[in-house]
Structure formats: C-alpha cells, structure tokens
C-alpha cells in the first residue's frame, strides 16, 4: 500500500492556481484586489517567522502555520478573519500539531513586545477563539507535508549536498512560503524546483540528474519560474504599497 503523501488529505486537497487566486466577495467590496490579497498573505509570513524565532520553534512549524493561513484564505475573507490575528493563531495551532506546543500567553507577550501598533493588540482570549474558528474552517485537516524532508536526500543523490548548496536551497524553500506554491504542488516538486533554481544560479549543470527522475520537468521548471518571478517582483514592493493594501481592510 502506498503510504503517506499520496494518501493524505494534503494531496487530495491540492488546489489549482485559479482556485487560490480568488478574492473573497467581502474583501472585494472593500476594494481588495488580487494583488493586494497576495501581498497581504506574503507580508504576513514575516510576523509568523519573527514570532517563531522569539518562541524558538522549528522552521517546520512556521511552514505549517503559513500553510494553514493560506488554506484558510481560500475559504474565508480577511474582513472576517483579520490576518494580524490569524497569523499568530496559525503559529499557535501549528505548534500543537507539530508537537512543540507554545503557550498562548508567551505568544501574546512576544507580539506586544514586537509591535507597538494597536492593531496587533490581541489578548489570549482572542487567540483561543480564533484557534477554534480556524480549526473549523480548515475542516480539521491539519497534516501538512513540506519540501524540507525530501531536500537533503535529493541533494545527496544529485551530489550537491555541500554546505553552500544546502543553505541556498534551504533558503529558497523557506521563501516558497511567500507564495501559494504549497497549496498547489506536491512538496517534493517544490523541493526539486528549488534545487533546479539553485543549480542554475550556481551554474551547475544537473540536466542529466533531472532527466533520470521520473517527474514532469515542465512542472518543476514552471515552479522555478514562479520563484524567480517572485524574487523579481519582490524588490519592487514598498512599505507604502503594503500599508495601502492593509488600509483597505479597515472596517
């Protein structure tokens, strides 16, 4: 019997890009465009990472938290589920799912230390209530598979498991969570796309190795293109642009 990913709820609920790129009607009414929507989701990865560093949980917990957040917004609006509360709550829920539970009290304390902004003033009670709402909205599907697991084995197999290559690809995988890739593609293809991107960047010809894999290289290359596009456009994003998007969410 084929185990794990191919039988998982994660695999069964992979989305098409078009399904992910839908702005909820309630948000649309507030003038949120698809670009705003993507920008806000991308931006909310930052506080999740920062918080995770503060409370000392693994990158895997961050990745799961971001996945929960992105899945949530395929179904729910940002107007009803404020991203500034959803982000820390997803980290809270992910910490339980990934067996490294963080106390809500500690999270709230760290949020207050990190932000003077009143918009981030949430109490423990808010996080606990949102936790239940998110659980419900996710339909209790909580197992998430990530590219990290297959990365070292692929790198070793490709003979690229030196420190510099490992760090580069690991960083690329981290950055893929700024996009919706984890909702759309199987994680091992994301891992391969990161290796592909890294090998092109470091000018290492790995064509032969990739050809030996029985994977659809078109998909891998498309993911790699998307990663490159992200880096390209990311440089042009200003704080003003992000603030403008968030301001539209105001009641």
């Amino acid at each position: 019997m084929a185990a794990n990913f191919w039988n998982s709820s994660h695999y069964k609920q992979l989305f098409d890009q078009e399904e992910v790129d839908v702005v909820h009607p309630l948000d649309k009414d507030k003038g949120i465009t698809l670009e705003d929507f993507k920008l806000i989701k991308m931006h909310m990865v930052i506080p999740i990472c920062k918080l995770a560093q503060q409370v000392k949980v693994r990158q895997r917990v961050v990745a799961t938290a971001v996945t929960y957040m992105r899945r949530l917004y395929t179904r729910k609006s940002m107007s009803e589920y404020d991203p500034r509360l959803v982000a820390p709550t997803c980290l809270y829920l992910a910490s339980k799912a990934e067996e490294s539970t963080v106390q809500a009290r500690l999270l709230v304390y760290c949020i207050k230390k990190m932000y003077s902004d009143d918009k981030y003033r949430y109490e423990i009670k808010d996080i606990l209530e949102m936790e239940m709402k998110i659980l419900e909205a996710l339909n209790y599907y909580l197992v998430v598979f990530h590219p990290y697991r297959s990365l070292p084995q692929f790198l070793q197999d490709a003979g690229m498991n030196d420190i510099s290559m490992t760090q580069l690809t690991w960083g690329l995988v981290n950055d893929t969570y700024r996009m919706d890739l984890i909702l759309i593609h199987p994680p091992h293809l994301i891992a391969l796309a990161c290796i592909y991107t890294a090998s092109v960047y470091r000018e290492k010809d790995k064509t032969a190795w990739f050809e030996e894999l029985r994977v659809d290289m078109n998909v891998v290359k498309n993911i790699a293109m998307e990663i490159l596009d992200f880096y390209e456009s990311h440089r042009l994003i200003t704080d003003e642009r992000i603030n403008a998007a968030f301001n539209k969410l105001k009641p």
Binding site: K96, R105, L135, Y140
Partner: peptide, 18 residues
C-alpha cells in the same frame, strides 16, 4: 490554564482525519 484546544485533541483529530 488558558491554552485552548488540548494538544492531545489536536493530534487525535489530525490523525483520524487521515
């Protein structure tokens, strides 16, 4: 002690869903 859904419940649900 104010820590939401028990991690035991979370883990049980997440596994049973799979």
């Amino acid at each position: 002690d104010g820590d939401g859904v028990s991690p035991t419940a979370i883990r049980e649900i997440m596994l049973l869903r799979e």
